[in-house]
Simulated scan of single mutants.
Amino acid sequence: MNIDQFLVKVKSAIQKNLEGVIALRDRRSLKDDLSYVTDGDLFVQSLILDILKEESKVTIVTEESQAEVSHKEEEGFIVVIDPIDGTENFTSGLAEWGVSIACFLDYQHVGSLLGCPELNLWLKTGDNVERFNSRIRGLSSSLTLDELVKATQGHEYRILGCCVYNMINVIRGSFLSFENPKGANSWDILAGLNLALENNLIVEVDDKPYTGEYLQANRKYRFRVEHR
């Protein structure tokens, strides 16, 4: 499996079909956790899965059809997909939503893609990143008011409702840091964490240094990404 070629194909397919994705933002239903899933989520997922059909022996972990990967299983390619991150933004007509893909071979990271298609912001493994110098700290929108009060200890804060957009911002230096002290799912964060490592940021998961390992999809992880 050529990871770079796969990620380029995914980006191209989403860009080509963006108008169709956006047209589906109003078609939504509630999941068991009371979050939305839209037909746009499922359409983006289908675009990615169609590309993966060309590959053999690939384990797929995706938010909209959760499959667990065990270390007891045969090693090989694992592709972790969040077809639309920030669905609440997406279905509300906001442009700050994203796509996240992280690829692993034998549980070692080999490539990732983050994209905010409606903003035409993309970042993948191997890209050169223009850096800004910011003092803004990004926070997760999943935090309660009490958790926000405990987390805020700095100059400026932003809560944007999309982990992918936040990750791109911290990697580019538009944020000094981005964190979720409450916890997020693996498909929300694996691509961003590994692209942050690639760009020499400090990355912690559950209060320990993160070094690029695969994170199982059966729990949530607290994390913090910060510039040195």
Rank of each mutant, 00 (worst) to 15 (best):
V203F: 01
G154A: 11
F132M: 13
N200W: 03
N199E: 05
L201C: 06
K208Y: 02
S140V: 10
L190M: 12
N180Y: 04
V203H: 00
N185P: 00
G161W: 07
E179R: 12
N194T: 06
G183A: 11
N133G: 04
H155N: 09
F175S: 07
W187G: 00
L148Y: 08
S174I: 08
T152D: 10
D206G: 08
N169E: 13
K208W: 01
L195R: 02
I168V: 04
I189P: 03
F175K: 06
S174F: 03
E204H: 12
D207R: 13
E147Y: 10
A196G: 05
K182G: 05
P181V: 08
I202V: 14
L148P: 07
T144D: 11
L195I: 00
V149F: 03
T144E: 13
V149G: 01
R172G: 09
Y157D: 04
N194W: 02
L190S: 02
N199C: 02
P209T: 08
E204S: 05
V205S: 00
H155F: 09
R137Y: 11
I171A: 06
K182E: 07
E156D: 10
E179N: 12
I202C: 05
R135V: 15
R172S: 15
N200P: 09
I136K: 05
C163Y: 05
L193W: 02
W187P: 01
G161H: 11
G138L: 14
K182F: 06
D188T: 04
S186G: 01
Q153E: 14
E156R: 12
F175T: 11
K150G: 03
D146R: 11
Y157E: 10
Y165M: 13
N166H: 02
Q153P: 07
I171P: 03
L190K: 01
E156Y: 05
A191V: 04
G173S: 03
S140E: 09
N200G: 06
C162F: 04
L193K: 07
L148M: 15
S140K: 11
V170Y: 06
S177G: 12
L139M: 15
P209A: 10
C163E: 14
V170E: 09
N199I: 01
K208C: 04
S186I: 01
L145G: 03
N180P: 05
A151C: 15
V203W: 00
F175W: 02
F178S: 08
I159K: 13
G138N: 10
S142K: 13
V170K: 09
T152N: 08
I168L: 15
F175I: 13
W187S: 01
C162A: 06
K150F: 05
G192N: 06
A184I: 08
D188N: 09
L148S: 11
I171F: 00
D146V: 12
K208A: 14
D207Y: 01
D188I: 05
F132R: 15
L160H: 07
N133K: 14
N169F: 08
G154P: 07
S140W: 08
M167R: 03
